[in-house]
Amino acid sequence: MHRVLLPVDTNESRALAQADYVKSLPNAAEAVEAYILFVFTEDSDDLPQEFEKFKSASRIGSVRRAQESLEEAGVDVTILEDSGDTEDDILEEAEAYDVDSIVLGGRKRSPVGKALFGSTTQGVILRSDRPVVVTGGGDA
Rank of each mutant, 00 (worst) to 15 (best):
S24C: 10
D82Y: 05
S83F: 08
D139W: 14
Q49S: 15
L116V: 11
E33Y: 08
D9G: 09
G137W: 04
A57C: 12
P111C: 03
D46Y: 07
V32T: 15
L80P: 09
A94E: 08
N11C: 15
P7G: 01
R107W: 12
V134P: 01
L47F: 08
E71D: 02
L70R: 02
E93I: 11
R107D: 05
G118R: 00
P48G: 03
D45I: 05
V132P: 06
A115S: 08
E68R: 14
V32S: 03
S83A: 13
K108M: 12
E52N: 09
D46F: 13
S119Q: 06
I102S: 02
Q18V: 10
D89T: 07
R127K: 11
R3Q: 09
S58A: 10
T86Y: 01
L5I: 05
G74E: 06
R65Y: 12
S44F: 12
R3T: 04
R59K: 10
E93K: 10
G61C: 02
E87L: 11
R14A: 06
K114D: 06
D88Y: 06
V124R: 01
D46N: 15
A31E: 09
T121I: 12
N11S: 14
R14D: 00
K23I: 12
V99D: 03
H2Q: 08
L80V: 08
F38E: 00
A34N: 04
S44M: 14
V77F: 14
Q18M: 09
L6P: 08
A73C: 08
D98R: 12
P26W: 07
E93T: 13
